[in-house]
Design a protein around this nucleic acid. Structure first.
Length: 269
DNA sequence: GCGACAG
DNA sequence: ATCTTGTCGC
């Protein structure tokens, strides 16, 4: 319960400047007063987010974070429904400590470079349903590795004040060379637009003989610690257990809603 | 103008 | 993101 609030406080690509962000102000920190509405506003907002972010950290090293959260959102294009999930794991045992979900409707389209404005409102809502905030958050996507250095993980870190980094499954617009074949091997993720090319993240092999993941800093934690956490969170599969947990939970809940086994705005679990 | 581009 | 079963392999 405690639901009812609209999810994303955003209109589509068009939309009036004044009206839009009516969703319950989800921000826990960061002092961001309103949610951007137009694409231009979103870009301007990202400049502010970037300026407020700490992509260096170093932040918590493995062993100094106990509650590690994964967040993800699953969409149903037909019904416009969406389910955001937050799964908190024990950093050592990878045991699930807590889960929370938020259901709503998508109100911002997927626009490359502006993913945060689509995913963040429901993700923040899910995180707020946790009984205890996590020590660290792992995002499904990018952080510093972003055209304006303001990917999803940067937004989430700045808005919540929590250490946050991103683990993405594809290289987005960036370049990289194939990392070595062993678990833990890595190569820099490069932005070729910069002169010289800037290292914005790392292609990290979490499992031998499996495609690497792409790690980037977000806020309050640097790339080295982010990669160290990623490796420990992915002892058996390509993706960190945080991501797998949040992805699985959000899919499961969305399916239950589709099958009528669950109310669209039901209580979290 | 076209293409490509996290999820 | 999503469309989608079985199949191959450790």
């Amino acid at each position: 319960m405690t639901d009812g609030a609209a999810t994303d406080g955003t209109a589509g690509t068009a939309g009036a400047t004044g009206g839009g962000g009516a969703a319950g102000a989800p921000g826990t920190a960061g002092g961001v007063p309103r949610w951007p509405v137009t694409e231009a506003e979103a870009v301007a907002e990202q400049e502010r987010i970037r300026a407020a972010a700490d992509p260096v950290g170093p932040g918590p090293a493995p062993g100094r974070a106990r509650r590690v959260a994964g967040v993800d959102v699953t969409y149903d294009e037909e019904s416009d429904l969406l389910v955001a999930a937050a799964v908190v794991l024990d950093a050592e045992s990878l045991e699930v400590l807590e889960e929370a979900v938020h259901t709503g409707r998508s109100r911002f389209p997927y626009i490359p470079g502006l993913l945060a404005f689509r995913e963040l409102p429901p993700v923040l809502a899910a995180l707020e349903k946790l009984g205890t905030p996590p020590d660290l958050v792992v995002c499904d996507g990018y952080g510093y590795a972003h055209p304006r250095r303001a990917g999803l993980a940067v937004h989430l870190g700045v808005l919540t004040g929590l250490p946050c980094f991103g683990v993405a499954k594809s290289p987005f617009v960036f370049d990289h060379t194939e990392p070595g074949p062993r678990r833990g091997d890595a190569s820099p993720l490069l932005d070729r637009r910069s002169v010289p090319p800037e290292t914005v993240g790392r292609a990290l092999r979490t499992q031998p003989g499996v495609r690497p993941v792409f790690v980037s800093a977000g806020h309050g934690i640097g790339l080295d610690h982010a990669c160290a956490h990623t490796l420990r969170l992915a002892p058996r599969y390509r993706l960190p257990e945080t991501t797998r947990g949040a992805d699985g939970l959000s899919r499961r809940v969305l399916r239950e809603i589709r099958e009528g086994l669950r109310e669209p705005y039901g209580a979290a679990e």
